[in-house]
Design a protein around this nucleic acid. Structure first.
Lengths: 190, 190
DNA sequence: GTCTATACGGCGATAGAC
DNA sequence: GTCTATCGCCGTATAGAC
């Protein structure tokens, strides 16, 4: 599929990476085309060769984030038990604590912004949190909690996304550890 | 303090209310001065008589939200026990489920946007989530959980803010009830 | 105090040379 | 494919009539 675009210069990839970086740091709306082009070291006017409209950059940003979750999911699937996979998800989130304190949840903060933006991008942003929720539900189901699987998934993801927001708001990375410890303990009671 | 401004027309109040409404619905950045003025039924140019800069409208928006929390806190203080107060806080959040599904958490979504906006407004937005956290910690301390009070506060607020984000993302108000039930049950174990 | 008109800048997007 | 130059619009903010 990469072969459909003949360019080997990797400019499109650099633009997407730059846009994701800036959208995560300052918000997608705050990042102008010029900002993104500068960050990617690509001449401004050239951007419109790769993207017909600014919204399409937003599409690519969401796709890039979703690809990161897919990659993570792939790695987690190699673990033996569903509980190990859920704990690894928690650990991985906590491992990001410094970045979360500075910029917020990589998925939640982007999703929140796109949701408020409305239009086409709002719908496209939904899977950023909904797909992890479904994945967690599947893990809990495999753990044998039965009908409680969905509620458990809601509890786990809510705790993680919520504490990420609190961490960003207070600027204190320790909050991530505090909540993670409680969530792990709760997992052990199931 | 209201007497410092002689105007009785209430235009400033209408502007702030309109700005809060639009900031909550579409995001503060998306709401232009013209949009706010139109929503408040105030001529555009007149806005700059009440606010020297756009940022000052942001200040007023944050103040208005904070005042809502102060009002809620005042009502909750009338309840007899700390656990009743915490449960009432949960109930009140769930009672907002339809609005949360459509627009997100009234405090969290605003705080998240202002935090990414950076500058002066980012710092001013922090108490929107930090003050409730402190209040919750005080309640837990009164419940006699000792050193766990802070961790409990983190767990409760993270759960509520997190499920609000999930609710907005999925569009399903039921998630609020599901998580609230789990948080109430957890409260009962303390 | 209230409002109109407008200055000014930055943005997304386009045209077209190379 | 790559890049420069520029258009047109809409945003904040101001000047000044009433």
């Amino acid at each position: 599929m990469a072969a459909l675009k003949s360019s080997k210069s990797g400019k499109r990839e650099r633009l997407v990476e730059a846009a994701l970086e800036l959208a995560y740091r300052d918000g997608f709306q705050a990042a102008s085309i010029a900002d993104i082009a500068k960050e990617a070291d690509v001449p401004v006017g050239n951007v419109y060769y790769y993207f017909k409209t600014r919204d399409q950059i937003g599409d690519a940003v969401i796709d890039a984030r979703m690809a990161q979750f897919e990659s993570l999911r792939g790695r987690l699937e190699k673990l033996a038990t569903p509980k190990e996979r859920l704990v690894a998800f928690i650990d991985m989130t906590v491992g990001n604590q410094e970045t979360v304190a500075a910029r917020g949840c990589p998925f939640g903060s982007l999703a929140a912004e796109f949701l408020k933006l409305g239009g086409h991008l709002a719908g496209k942003a939904r899977p950023m949190l909904a797909d992890p929720l479904e994945w967690m539900e599947a893990q809990f189901r495999q753990m044998g909690v039965g009908d409680a699987a969905f509620a458990c998934a809601v509890h786990l993801e809510a705790g993680l996304r919520g504490v990420s927001l609190l961490t960003q708001c207070t600027g204190d990375p320790k909050l991530m550890e505090i909540e993670a410890a409680q969530l792990r303990a709760w997992l052990d009671t199931l």
